[in-house]
């Protein structure tokens, strides 16, 4: 619980403040670092989204051209079964990015509900929820996720649940701290005073004010979720073949590392580039937010 998140902000921003606030955002996003990061991210995301437009089947085997290095015909070469690696990397990227976003959405969703409930209900429920947060925090997450993933059918849904279900605690803590400060504001107290229900007050009056904090926390957990997905898939507990994700491609590449190093280098480099860009943009956003407070 940091002191900055508890600091009161003026509830209503004047037009002038809103203007400087907007200008600060523009200034933050126009630094060379932020521009290059967002450009690279747009290129990567654009390529993965364009996967179906290339007209190449990612599962088509070509036994005449197995295990080839990159060439003009196969940009990223072919894998051990003669599948075009470029298109597999594109489809893998779609899965990796989708899992990153969905897991973040799941984790943030759970965190917001728990945080709002803890901060806006009786001390008893608050205590119980915080003990649950403690419980999840004291779990060795990689070990737990490996066990839980045994229980569910392998696939995108499972990995989203595993990653999201074990990463909501920090969001819950943040939202709870925000809620505790927001609920002391006059308009929230008034809403309670005139007899609005707790749930309605929490959703209509507290949640909107906590939204900026939530958004920053969510955006910073996308890269973590992508890394978790890659780790699990690499350990063979995530995305299963023939479906591909960048982590799963790395797992396959591990077996033929000596002969076909490019199969390992390409997906890993893409994971690293994507996570780096996401981290840069998150930092920029957070700094602009903190400066705006």
């Amino acid at each position: 619980m940091s002191t900055t998140s508890l600091r009161r902000r003026p509830a209503v921003k004047s037009k002038d403040q809103a203007f400087t606030f907007g200008r600060r955002w523009v200034a933050a996003l126009l630094t060379p670092q932020a521009i290059s990061a967002s450009t690279l991210l747009v290129v990567i995301v654009g390529f993965t989204l364009s996967a179906p437009l290339w007209g190449i089947n990612p599962d088509a085997l070509d036994l005449d051209s197995m295990s080839q290095p990159p060439s003009s015909e196969h940009w990223f070469g072919t894998d051990g079964l003669g599948r075009d690696y470029f298109i597999r990397v594109l489809y893998g990227g779609r899965v990796s990015l989708a899992v990153g976003l969905l897991a973040t959405l799941t984790g943030t969703g759970i965190g917001v509900v728990v945080g709002l409930a803890a901060g806006f209900s009786s001390p008893w429920i608050d205590g119980l929820l915080m003990r649950i947060v403690d419980f999840f925090n004291s779990l060795p997450w990689l070990l737990m996720v490996m066990v839980v993933s045994l229980l569910l059918k392998p696939g995108i849904g499972t990995i989203v649940i595993c990653v999201g279900g074990f990463s909501w605690m920090s969001v819950a803590r943040l939202v709870r701290a925000e809620t505790l400060s927001i609920r002391e504001r006059t308009y929230v107290r008034y809403a309670v005073y005139i007899g609005q229900s707790r749930a309605r007050t929490a959703l209509w009056h507290v949640l909107p004010d906590a939204l900026p904090t939530i958004l920053v926390a969510a955006s910073s957990s996308v890269s973590g979720a992508m890394m978790s997905e890659a780790t699990l898939s690499f350990l063979g507990r995530g995305i299963q073949p023939p479906q591909a994700s960048w982590g799963q491609l790395l797992q396959i590449a591990q077996g033929s590392l000596q002969q076909l190093p490019h199969l390992a280098i390409i997906p890993g480099a893409l994971i690293m580039a994507t996570i780096y860009c996401l981290n840069v943009l998150t930092n920029v956003t957070r700094q602009a937010m903190e400066a705006g407070q």
């Binding site: 690499f234 590449a253 591990q254 390992a264 690293m272």
Partner: peptide, 9 residues
């Protein structure tokens, strides 16, 4: 940003 298992490979 670098996945440790990629670096290991």
């Amino acid at each position: 940003s670098m996945p440790p298992f990629w670096f290991a490979l």
